[in-house]
Computed example of a mutant assay.
Amino acid sequence: MATKKPENLSFEEAMAELEGIVHSMEQGSLTLEQSLKQFERGIALANSSTNKLQQAEQKVSILMANDTHSETVPFQGDVE
């Protein structure tokens, strides 16, 4: 099966693949060449995911601009 281009994956698919890449690299059983290919794929997936998040943020901002009673706040993420 051919690997899809990162931009053709959903955000969730890209994140799942990225997690798999991280896991395989952490195992330490890949050759240098395999590691470099996985790293390159991981960078492409991360960039694509960042673009998708930015697009979603823009859509939310546009939708919220029409709502005068709500205000957007930055996402804080998980706090440890």
Rank of each mutant, 00 (worst) to 15 (best):
V79H: 14
L32A: 10
Q55A: 07
E17W: 11
V60A: 04
L53M: 14
Q58L: 12
L30P: 04
T31V: 09
S10D: 10
D67Q: 05
A46C: 09
A46M: 04
H69W: 01
K52M: 12
E33N: 08
S48W: 06
A56H: 06
I43Q: 02
E13P: 04
A44Y: 02
V60N: 05
F11P: 01
K59S: 01
K5A: 10
G28S: 06
I43C: 03
E71V: 10
I21Q: 02
Q34K: 13
E40F: 03
S29L: 09
L36F: 12
T31K: 12
L53K: 14
L36Q: 14
G77F: 10
E33P: 13
L32R: 04
S35K: 05
N66W: 12
N8R: 11
S49Q: 13
N47V: 15
A14Q: 09
P74S: 06
A65T: 03
G42M: 02
E7S: 08
N47K: 13
G20S: 09
S70N: 11
F75L: 06
I43E: 04
I62M: 11
S10H: 09
H23N: 06
M15G: 00
E57N: 11
T68D: 15
G77S: 12
Q58W: 15
S48Y: 01
D78K: 11
E40K: 02
Q76P: 07
I21G: 05
L18K: 09
I21A: 08
L32N: 04
I43S: 02
T3A: 11
S48T: 05
A56K: 08
S24I: 02
L63S: 05
I21L: 13
E26N: 11
F39N: 01
Q54H: 12
A46Q: 08
M25I: 06
E57K: 15
G77C: 11
S70H: 11
E40H: 02
S48D: 07
I21K: 03
E7A: 07
K4D: 12
M1N: 08
A16T: 08
K59T: 00
N51A: 13
E17A: 03
A14C: 03
F11K: 07
T31D: 03
I62H: 13
M25Y: 11
E40P: 07
E12M: 05
